[in-house]
Amino acid sequence: MYGLQVWIGALLTLMIFSFLYKDNPFYKFAEHLFVGVSAAYWMVVGVWGTMVPNMLAKIHPPLVRNVLPALATAEPEFHYIIPCILGILLLTRLITPIAWLSRWALAFIIGYTAGVRFSRYLQSDFIGQIKSSLIPIISVGDGGFSIGMTFSHIVLTVGVVCGLIYFFFSKEHKGAFGAASRVGIYILMVTFGASFGYTVMARISLLIGRMSFLGEWLGVIAGWFS
């Protein structure tokens, strides 16, 4: 069984790699298979991983006694009927005369998104990042005044300020403001260049993983001939 698994895996790997040369029937096959199998995969995960334990088992625990016996004796939590109703509302899209009802479900979801993201970004990114920026410009280390660290602190502070100025939308980027915004975009470019350069190596390790897998497969073949 493992041998078969390696063979299928290896052939599919080669089919995907063939796309690098150009589009071809092998790639089309792998692509179409991937779409079908993965769509079903996530649906199965959704049903067994979310629908059954988080909805059915919550609304009426005895329902799942054959599937998840551990949850079958819990107290029912009736508020889980709400997502069930909203889910069904969403499906009214399929019935043209009442399709507009599905907007209620979408309205609920989008309201949830707006509320949750408002709080999260306010706390972690807005306040959190401002707080980390509150550092002295002049740095005094163990050995007294440190030119190096002071320079770094200045770069950081000026960088954050100018970067933020770049994002101003309602003021024309002219004069001193424009100059600061130029510095801002340069800082962003350093950031992008640095992050890109830093990631290159990590991406290559993924390829090494695939190559080692193909090597393993070649090992299986070589095993037959020796």
């Binding site: 509150l134 550092i135 002049i138 300020v161 100025i165």
Partner: peptide, 28 residues
């Protein structure tokens, strides 16, 4: 609302300006 978000940036810059100045003065 974009202009409103810009006011948010002014608030952020004010905090940073004030905080950095005070921290620097503290060290000095």
């Amino acid at each position: 609302s974009l202009k409103g978000a810009d006011a948010g940036k002014v608030i952020a810059l004010m905090f940073i300006g004030l905080g950095v100045t005070l921290e620097t003065l503290r060290v000095l």
